[in-house]
Amino acid sequence: MSSIIFYLFAGVLIFASLAVVLARNPLYNVLALVVAIFAMSSLFVLLEAFFVGMILLLVYAGAVLVFFIFVVMCLNLQSDTTILLRQDRFKLMGWLIGILFLLEFFWVIKSTLAAQTIETSSVHGSIENIGRILFTDYLLPFELTSFLLLIAIFGIVSLAQGAFKTGKEGNS
């Protein structure tokens, strides 16, 4: 039963991810990403990593990507900029590297599955377990992420500060 659900969501994930890259309309790209993240969080739930699955759904699909949709709708993306991005030589290079990467990955998985089975962890991804690990074993990296937030604040303030001003100057 669970393997059927797995293949269902895995299939949805692959198709949605392809749509993220291939869809022509930027709005569809973002919407496909929402679907992809929904499918991914379902896979996490199947692995009994409930907390990660829920956070992925709430934070990414719920908050970040809806914000993305707003941004995409506010920007006028039908202008020349999108055409400039579709340069053929980059497209060819991208396909080549992507296919190479995929083949390499298949080779790796095949050789590994033949040699050994990967054991799953016995610890369930409940909030309690994650919280315990986060505040004991991984205390230092967890605390250091606060610096990342600090950089984000400095970055946004200093990069956005003059942006509105120059916009006004451009209009007047």
Binding site: P141, L144, T145, F147, L148, I151, A152, F154, G155, S158, L159
Partner: peptide, 12 residues
Amino acid sequence: IAIEILTISLYV
């Protein structure tokens, strides 16, 4: 995390 602290401040 350390690499990101360095790199993100460099991006800005």
